[in-house]
């Protein structure tokens, strides 16, 4: 049984009387001990999925799903208190903008220490508990690669550089020893060495503590080196999802292929000074989403049938939704 199982998640946003489907029948599963990548252009709804899982959606967003469960328990019908405990113990989220996701009026140490669930604090008396909190805060901060804990734990969010606050968000997520880490672009804006450190840390935690990770990023190189499986999102629709190896070797959806082709490091036979292959056009805005397959207007293989939303098809654990998939001749 998958750890987190989402089927046909639809998110509607009400704007001026009409409802726009920001997410259209999104499927996502994360197995225990798996690192799953969630890829897509900006505006494809990746962060909305994060908010939907963490239950942080505004009131005017309407969420429906055929299934949205955590270890078999439905997240949609779960009582608030249970959901809260779940978020406190099992799921941790690293949000996209670390600068605004930290409380400007509290020191980083305070915010880090309040993320520790009570069960993980040792000691009976408050001074012992305080010491224990302090100790685990310092060790977590070291773990994510911040050296000067004395300086940074007593600093306020506006006093620290962005990459440090990103690491702090990661530390705040990891300090509760979660089972699933949802990391929304955790390495954005970091330079390569720091990024490698962070990715290594995540991989190590995945291997030693069997931490499942939902890794959301634009960095295809990092994704292909650390993730086991990948889900590709385009304009609120899941276009393809499967094991990383399969997707890289034989992408079935034209969008996945275009995405992979646009990363130069995946192409060994790229002639010098040649143009990188890209899809024409840009991702449509939510006001003007095409009917049917939303890739339609940009897709090189589009035909008349593409105005009907393609059903999800499946080959083993590789799912795709396309009427005219690539590489099918060979089968």
């Amino acid at each position: 049984m998958p750890m987190l199982d989402i089927k046909n998640l639809t998110l509607e946003i009400e704007t001026a009387g009409t409802r726009v489907k920001a997410l259209d029948k999104v499927n996502l599963t994360i197995n225990s001990g798996e690192i799953r990548a969630l890829v897509g252009e900006s505006g494809s709804g990746k962060s909305l999925i994060v908010s939907a899982i963490s239950g942080a959606l505004p009131q005017k967003f309407h969420l429906t799903a055929d299934r949205m469960s955590w270890k078999g328990k439905s997240l949609l019908s779960m009582p608030t208190e249970e959901r809260r405990q779940l978020m406190r113990r099992d799921i941790a989220v690293v949000f996209q903008n670390p600068g605004s996701a930290l409380d400007p009026s509290a020191t980083l140490g305070e915010q880090l220490e309040e993320s520790i669930p009570d069960e993980l604090v040792e000691g009976k008396w408050f001074w012992q508990r305080r010491q224990s909190r302090r100790k685990s805060a310092i060790s977590t901060v070291h773990k994510v690669g911040i050296k000067h804990h004395r300086h940074y734990l007593s600093a306020y969010p506006h006093q620290i550089p962005t990459d440090i606050s990103q690491k702090f968000m990661l530390a705040m997520a990891l300090i509760s020893q979660p089972k699933l880490l949802i990391a929304d672009d955790p390495t954005r804006g970091m330079e390569t060495t720091t990024k490698t450190q962070v990715l290594k840390l995540l991989t190590r935690l995945n291997q030693t503590k069997s931490l499942s990770i939902l890794f959301i990023s634009h960095d295809l190189l990092a994704i292909s080196s650390m993730c086991h499986s990948m889900t590709v999102l385009y304009c609120g629709q899941t276009v393809e999802s499967g094991r990383m190896k399969m997707l890289r070797k034989r992408p079935l959806h034209p969008y996945t292929k275009a995405l992979l082709d646009s990363a130069p490091s995946f192409q060994n036979d790229l002639p010098p000074k040649s143009l990188l292959p890209t899809l024409d056009g840009t991702i449509p805005s939510l006001k003007h989403v095409p009917i049917g397959c939303r890739l339609g207007p940009r897709c090189p293989r589009a035909q008349r049938d593409c105005v009907i939303t393609p059903a999800v098809r499946r080959i083993h654990d590789h799912t795709y939704s396309c009427h005219f998939p690539l590489h099918m001749e060979k089968l």
Partner: peptide
């Protein structure tokens, strides 16, 4: 939002 998602 972040504080809530931390389960406070």
């Amino acid at each position: 939002t972040a504080a809530r998602s931390r389960g406070l």
